[in-house]
């Protein structure tokens, strides 16, 4: 297995040097495509401003190719990219990206209408028109701090509250928001519903935030069993 991957790696490295050659259409291996020595790319320009330290392993090890969502362009946001990936169904990332773009556009339109029709300068100050800020705020408001785990003690299954890792927090917040956005009537578009949900969540209202609050309540109710974690 390892041999096959190494050979394929060599095959691929040769390709840019050799003339047009036959490339296999399918990959036979089930394991990771890149050898363990390959490192993740640093594709943001701000991260590459300083030259590399002598002892930085990126200097000596090959780097994986950047994926198709990783760019140094201003429109890249790591959280939004993750959101798009979670929203992707059956590999249709194009559609997920379209949904997110239209959702942000909708947020802008809704907020700008309020902004431009606001009577006073003071009112305008409180209207947030940047969809990215609203998105980040919505995610933050939906992140759970605790979650539950089933633990068996003395033949009884208890629901034990446990702290949540950052990745899981992010994942949960995003899935709740997506569920809130897709839970709709047939004739309403996802990007309309999702815009509405994101705006609500940014104000600490709506279905996504409610899910988080329910989970927190459950944890609070079961806090007597917190020590079962150990």
């Amino acid at each position: 297995m390892a041999g096959a991957v190494e050979q394929l790696g060599k095959c691929m490295r040769c390709m840019s040097v050799c003339k047009r050659t036959w490339t296999p259409a399918f990959i036979q291996t089930r394991t990771a495509i890149y050898q363990p020595i390959y490192l993740e790319p640093t594709f943001r320009k701000e991260d590459l401003q300083q030259p590399l330290d002598e002892l930085d392993k990126r200097k000596y090890q090959p780097i994986k190719a950047a994926t198709n969502e990783q760019t140094s362009l201003a429109s890249y946001d790591a959280v939004v990219a993750k959101f798009i990936r979670i929203l992707t169904k059956e590999g249709n990332k194009k559609r997920a990206r379209k949904i997110v773009d239209k959702t942000f556009e909708n947020i802008k339109l809704i907020q700008l209408e309020k902004y431009h029709k606001a009577a006073t300068e003071e009112e305008r100050q409180y209207i947030e028109c940047d969809p990215l800020t609203i998105f980040h705020q919505a995610i933050t408001n939906c992140k759970p701090l605790l979650t539950t785990q089933k633990v068996k003690r003395g033949g009884v299954m208890y629901t034990v509250p446990i702290p949540v890792k950052p990745n899981y927090q992010m994942y949960k917040a995003m899935t709740w928001l997506i569920d809130a956005g897709t839970d709709k009537e047939r004739d309403i578009r996802v990007w309309d519903k999702l815009a509405y949900e994101l705006l609500n969540a940014a104000q600490n209202e709506g279905k996504g935030v409610r899910k988080k609050q329910e989970l927190h309540k459950l944890c609070e109710a079961n806090r007597a069993y917190a020590h079962f974690r150990w």
Binding site: A74, S75, K108, L112, C129, L132
Partner: peptide
């Protein structure tokens, strides 16, 4: 002017 372009990083032409 109309605040349609919100991204503070939008100084780069895309």
């Amino acid at each position: 002017d109309r605040k349609w372009l919100q991204n503070p990083k939008c100084k780069v032409a895309l």
